[in-house]
Each structure stands twice: as structure tokens, then as C-alpha cells.
Amino acid sequence: MPVPLLRASPVASAAQAKNLSRIDFRELQALTQTLQQIDRLMGQAQGIGYRVDQVDSEFKRLFPQSFGQALTTNDLVVGARARLDTSVAAFNQTMRVQAQVVGNVAADTQALASIMAKSQGAEGGLQAQQATNQLLALAAKQQFQIQNLMAAQYRAETLEASRRAQAEAEAQAATRKFLGNGTAYHPR
């Protein structure tokens, strides 16, 4: 006996069409653009940047481990100035990243309101899922911003701590050089 074909009623077809309708999300492009802006800011790091293959050589150049007798006062001053400039540039870059993140908060607030409105007005399963995906994308973008901000902040703090440690090591080396063999000069 042949199986009868079931035909969907017009009401069921309309419900299925609503369930599969899509929502247009312009917010995704804006989220991507703000992440790209932060990436550009992170790429503008001066002194010691974020490239793994360059960190060691740049760090060794700015913070040498040996303090040979050949270093002149001028060499010490030039090195100290380069380290100070690098620390200041790192803090400046951190402030720029912070400013960008703070600036993004207003845009994120608008994006969140728009996504929530679309979520509330979702007519079908696909629209609801799309709205959820957009909320997850916004949360991921904010997490990436926090990670970049933390990287910039920790970089600045590390460079400043290294600069202070280097200044201390150079001062100790200068003291040893001044004292020589440890016997102080005694006039007769």
C-alpha cells in the first residue's frame, strides 16, 4: 500500500520560513574594525615590540648583562637614555591602547543594544541563534581587547622594572670600578 504524501499546510510553511529567516547584522563589521584598530596600536610598540622572534635581541641590546671596563660615561648615559625612552614609549603605547578600549565601550554599548533588540524581535530559531552568535562575538571582542590591554600594561611594567634593575646593576659596576681592588685610598 502506498504511503500517502503529507503536505505542509500554508500555516506550517509560513512558520518554517520564519524559522529559517536571517537577520542582517552590521555590528559584526564594526566589531572586526575595532579589533583591527587595537591590533594596529599593538603593532606600533616602540623599543621592544611584541614579535617573539625579536624580543630577545632587542632586550639584550637595551639591557646588556656585562659592564666591561670599556664603557665610557657617555656610553652609559646613551644606554640609560635609550632605556628610559623605551619605558616612556611603552607607557605611552599602553595609554593609547587604554584610550582606544575606553572609546570602544560606547560603540559596544550601542552594538549590544542593537543586538539585544534584534534578539528580542527574533521570529525564528535561525534569527535567535544569529543574535546569540553576535552576542558571543561581542563578548569575544571585549575579551581580546582586555588581553591586548593586559599585554601592553605588563610590557610597560616589565620594561620599567628592567630599566630600574639595569640602572642598579650599572651603579654597582661603577662602584666596583671606583673602589678597584677594595682597598680605599688612605692619605699618609
Rank of each mutant, 00 (worst) to 15 (best):
F91G: 08
Q37H: 10
A165F: 05
G180H: 09
M42R: 10
A45S: 11
D53Y: 08
A169G: 06
V52N: 06
A174Q: 13
R22N: 09
L159S: 04
T158K: 06
L6I: 11
E123N: 08
R26V: 05
R7S: 02
K60S: 15
G47C: 09
A174E: 10
R40W: 00
A171S: 15
V78C: 01
V105I: 12
Q142H: 05
N181M: 03
V3Y: 00
A117H: 04
Q130D: 08
M150K: 14
R7G: 04
A106G: 10
A137M: 12
Q29L: 11
K18E: 09
M1C: 01
Q69M: 11
Q54G: 06
F178V: 08
E58Q: 15
Q143I: 09
P2T: 03
T32W: 01
E170Y: 03
I38K: 01
Q172D: 07
Q98C: 00
Q134N: 09
I115Y: 02
R83N: 02
Q172R: 13
L138S: 04
Q36D: 10
Q46S: 14
Y185P: 07
Q143H: 11
N133S: 15
L112A: 11
A174C: 10
Y185F: 15
Q44S: 13
T109F: 10
R83S: 01
K141V: 14
S87R: 07
T175G: 00
L159M: 07
G43T: 10
Q46I: 09
T132K: 15
A122D: 04
K177I: 04
V101T: 09
L41S: 03
A151Q: 14
N74E: 14
T183Q: 15
T109Y: 07
V97M: 03
M150Q: 15
E27Q: 14
E168G: 12
A82G: 00
A90M: 12
D75L: 03
L126H: 06
T109R: 14
D39Q: 08
V77G: 00
V11P: 00
L159H: 02
A167I: 06
E168A: 12
A156L: 10
A30S: 14
L28C: 01
A173C: 09
T73G: 14
N148M: 12
A161W: 02
K60G: 08
D24G: 03
Q127D: 12
K141Y: 02
V101Q: 03
